[in-house]
Nucleic acid binder design. Sequence first.
DNA 1: ATGAAAGCGCTAACAA
DNA 2: TTGTTAGCGCTTTCAT
Lengths: 339, 339
Amino acid sequence: MVRIKDIARKAGVSPTTVSNVIHGNNKKVSRETVEKIQKLLKEMDYVPSMGAVMLVGGNSRLIGVLAGEPGGEDRHREGNAFANELIRALESEIYKRNYYMLLHFVSTAEEGIQFAATWNVEGLVTLGFSARDNEKLQLKCRAPVVSVDVYYEKQRVANVGLDDREAGCQMADYLFGCGHRELGFLADNDVGVDHERWEGVLLSGRKRGIKETEIRHIIIPQNIQERKMYYEKHLKELAQTADVLFFASDYYAAEAVAYLQDMGLSVPCDISVAGFDDSEAALLCRPRLTTMRQDNSRKGALAVKKLFEYIEGTRGRTLDAKLKAELVVRDSVADRKCI
Amino acid sequence: MVRIKDIARKAGVSPTTVSNVIHGNNKKVSRETVEKIQKLLKEMDYVPSMGAVMLVGGNSRLIGVLAGEPGGEDRHREGNAFANELIRALESEIYKRNYYMLLHFVSTAEEGIQFAATWNVEGLVTLGFSARDNEKLQLKCRAPVVSVDVYYEKQRVANVGLDDREAGCQMADYLFGCGHRELGFLADNDVGVDHERWEGVLLSGRKRGIKETEIRHIIIPQNIQERKMYYEKHLKELAQTADVLFFASDYYAAEAVAYLQDMGLSVPCDISVAGFDDSEAALLCRPRLTTMRQDNSRKGALAVKKLFEYIEGTRGRTLDAKLKAELVVRDSVADRKCI
DNA sequence: ATGAAAGCGCTAACAA
DNA sequence: TTGTTAGCGCTTTCAT
């Protein structure tokens, strides 16, 4: 391994000078020395020893990405695919800034805290963490924290997410606008993101004078087997009493379409279905799924951008940043006004 | 941050002793001292400074995971989902061994080499790297390298993968066994994994006296738009001339089923379809997809296991490790013998 | 059983 | 413009 002192010796200068050149402190070094050393740096394949860098300064050039396990093993794999796109975007943005990503799938905030301390990370991005855990993390870590897709009661942690309420409302607006009246909103939980989407649906209904009690809010099991059983028991009746089923994810929507089909029901003739995310499940689904598109790559990029604003102290904390979702109309929702 | 010397001071011993306790060199330390220090370590939340650890020893406790970008942006997102499951498994196994995962989506071997050197990683796992790039990497890095899903001409790099040829053969056996005769194998390339699967198909045909020229091998475009155009032009004719279409991934299979359906063709009545992977696309597809299941979590775990065998010098290099795929019969392939 | 001291590679304060 | 030096936190001889 080539060290700074090797370069220094070869160049006939001191390590300090080399270090200065490396860090672009070119005011302190003569033009020719700079050039000579830069050439040597290239030729000899100098690579910094991050151990030393970490030890001496506080700068590890490491960003920790902490991914919580939402709902554990049973949860459908869609969540993974989501995290995946995000993680790719995260890494790419982090690397662009000459930082490195330490990724850890973590179960407790404590583990995350220890992780951050061990590596002296300069920043932290969390996915699938509860509000509480994020607050704990922020409290115990000196590195700035940016969470993704979290809703706080009283926001103390920087967050990047989607305007889920607006998105839920937008879809419901569209659905009601298509002449549907009996709407069911289906999600596998009622906190955070999914709760906001539901609130959005409610909002849309209220605008039309539809009462909360008239809109069905159904929590479906996370476990695939249990969900299957649930559908076997309830889906048919649901399809008969509702005009449209709005799912909190494309995967669930596509799955339901498949089950509906198994029961001899046709989408959107017998019942309309809408999803959320515009993931590949929406494309594979027949009929093609009407859904709310969200851009996870952009979300990841924004999270990193905010994180570095905090790291560099570029600007005061704007705690909340929300992206907009986009309605994608395809074939799974019937327009009842046209019939 | 609590340092070793803080613990030492509080315990009234030297840093050396604390270090010894931390590393379980308990023969050198008296029972009571060990206990006292261990208690202190817990109480004071001691966390090692990895910078110092890296600097002093060669051990960074870092495993680099290098994920190549297979085919660039255009490629369908299925590949990501695959990498995702694998990456989760990788991280979990790495963390289990008290190591940490540095993840980088990389485009060139050179970038990987620099990455490895900068962080002094103790091992490297590569995904989606070419054989050449893996060899380069191995040559230039002192850390052991384990690649995933690579086929080498002359194997010099440790690899963990699936027995793709066997798997391809097994599926073809099944398909032929169902009475199908006109088989088409569709993939978006003909190297590595997909080539092996194709070889497996050929093998199966040969066993039955079916000549290579009788089996169709179709390379479909990676880009979704181009693929769509390709299908619009050719799929109908393909469906008329073939009995069964065997795709190298479930995503492609499910997509084709959808297009077939769009054209008014019914699977498996008009044509049978089979996939590969047993990903969620297989479950969402109607009819449910007959496919070859592979366990990516197991693959990831095995890769890490092998890597650590090399790191620890536990055993001589067995360069190649192959998992078996499993035939999952569902509803997308007709049994022509029964008709 | 315990401790003192050297040194890993680098940066930054200070000196020249 | 360049060099000297101290020190980051830890492990590892080598003494005691």
